[in-house]
Amino acid sequence: MTKILLILHVLAAIVAVGPVTVAASMFPPAARRAHQDAGAGTTGAEVSTVRLLHRVCRVYGAVGLAVPVLGFATASAMGVLGSGWLITSIALTAAAAGLLIAFVLPRQDELVEQVAAGRPVERAATVQLAMFTGLFNLLWATVTVLMVIRPGSSTGA
């Protein structure tokens, strides 16, 4: 059962977190391009791209809740719930989720509205969003590293 839980946990991380990290990283430059091109009389494809990237972040962010749920189940089955590397991973995962919910998605909402309304998008807003997105991605990368090189790993790697 532990192997099945671990497989599901890893698959959930790949399928759910991967698209969020990529879409969130693509969003700031897409928002800048959409605004720049909006003045040139575009067909709205850029606005659709910004909306799609935001929707991917929201939907896959919600699906990503399966990652810690399956992670807790896996850790419980493995008997490592009290391990320092796991507690650190849980804290970093909570921080990443907090960043996504409190900073990334709300700023994306604002920029989607601005782009859709044809209002100017300030470069500072997209740079700040890119910073929060970078922190989100860095936290997930750190959790991934902890999962691979965790102390006491049975792989000997």
Rank of each mutant, 00 (worst) to 15 (best):
G44C: 09
G41M: 12
P19C: 07
F132N: 04
T49D: 13
I87T: 07
P29F: 05
F132S: 03
S76R: 15
A30L: 06
L86A: 08
P106H: 02
F27C: 03
Q128I: 00
L105C: 00
T126H: 10
A102D: 03
T2R: 15
T42R: 15
A94Y: 12
V145G: 07
H35I: 00
V22A: 08
L105P: 04
T142N: 03
V47Y: 02
E110W: 01
A24R: 07
A96F: 11
L70R: 02
A157S: 10
L8G: 01
S153W: 13
T21F: 02
K3E: 15
T2E: 14
M131L: 13
G61S: 04
A12F: 13
V115F: 10
L5A: 12
I4P: 00
R107C: 00
L135I: 10
L146I: 07
A23P: 10
L138F: 11
I7N: 02
T43P: 02
L111H: 08
T126F: 11
S25M: 09
T2M: 11
G41A: 09
G118H: 11
T74L: 08
I87R: 09
R33D: 12
M26C: 02
R58T: 04
A45R: 15
P120D: 14
S25V: 04
A125H: 12
S76Y: 13
A75Y: 07
V121Q: 03
A13W: 10
A96T: 06
G98V: 04
G152L: 04
D109Q: 08
Q114Y: 02
L146Y: 09
A13Y: 08
V20D: 05
D109A: 09
M26T: 00
G152N: 06
Y60G: 00
A30P: 12
G84R: 11
E110V: 05
S154L: 15
M147T: 03
E46L: 13
R150Q: 14
L99R: 06
A116N: 11
A141V: 15
L81G: 01
C57Q: 04
W85D: 09
G44H: 10
L53Q: 08
